[in-house]
Each structure stands twice: as C-alpha cells, then as structure tokens.
C-alpha cells in the first residue's frame, strides 16, 4: 500500500527560533516516526548530513532533546548553480518522556543520516498477560 505511492514533496520545516541562536545557520525540525512496542518505544528521525560525533541526545528530567549538526557537503572551490535545500544547519527537536522509560538503558544509533533511539520501558510498565483461571 504505502510502498506503491509516490513520495509527496514537502519542504524542510525550518524552526521558528524562539531564542536567538548562538551559531549561524538554519535550524530544522527533523521528520520522525515514533512507535511503541510491548517493551520499548522507538523514535526514528531523519537527519541527513549529521554524523555521530555531531549528534547529542540529552534527557533532562522528562524532556528528551535530540540535536544534530549537519555537515554541508559542498566541496572547496565549487560554484553554486542551483540551491533547492539548505545544506548543513541543525536538526533539533524535543519530546516529553514519561516515567515508564528505563532512562539508563536508552540507546541511540545513527546510520545513513537516520537516527534510531530506543527507549526501553521499565519492567513494571510492560503489559502482562493475566491468565483467567476457571473457578
């Protein structure tokens, strides 16, 4: 179903800056998928151009912040002919994380410009199947 459809063009969402940023360059909101399984919540974010060294994932109280700096892939001495997207810049987004997350076991991987953050649930928050016994 979803495999057959054509991709709908959409422009990168540039964030309205609430505060003055200290570094120059645009700030984007990455597109994310968030899904939940019995034992974990997974967050997948598109962050093209971001390398692992330039990505920070921070959990402060219940606010989870992902922030990645993208490298502009332009080489030296090249002249621009067409610019349709802003190369480089930052991808930032914040989420509220509930108490059911086992904070110590959060893991993040970055591959081909896609970040995958796994937020495992604490054992007691996982659903348990209750067997109904006949009396």
């Amino acid at each position: 179903m979803a495999e057959e459809t054509r991709i709908t063009p959409r422009e990168k969402r540039e964030m309205a800056k609430a505060a003055e940023t200290t570094r120059p360059g645009p700030v984007f909101t990455p597109e994310v998928d968030i899904y939940e399984k019995d034992n974990e919540i997974v967050l997948v974010a598109d962050m093209p151009g971001v390398t692992a060294g330039k990505l920070t994932v921070d959990l402060n109280k219940d606010i989870l912040t992902i922030d990645g700096e993208a490298e502009a892939p332009k080489g030296e001495g090249e002249t621009e002919l067409l610019r349709e997207f802003a190369a480089g810049g930052r991808y930032t987004r914040q989420f509220t994380v509930s108490d059911v997350i086992d904070r110590d076991k959060i893991t993040a991987t970055l591959k081909n410009g896609v970040m995958r953050l796994t937020l495992p649930k604490v054992a007691k928050a996982q659903p348990r199947k209750i067997e109904v016994k006949e009396a």
Binding site: D46, M47, P48, G49, T79, E80, L81, F85, A87
Partner: peptide
C-alpha cells in the same frame, strides 16, 4: 522530490540530494 543542490567547478558538476536512510 528529492530536492537538488547543484554546484560546479572547472572539471565537474556535483548534484547533491538529501536521501536519509
């Protein structure tokens, strides 16, 4: 889709696109 950035130098054209994943 995808969006392109195109640059050139004396010898080459460079076409770049963001295709994460």
């Amino acid at each position: 889709y995808p969006l392109f950035n195109i640059t050139e130098d004396a010898d080459n054209y460079y076409v770049r696109a963001e295709l994460p994943g």
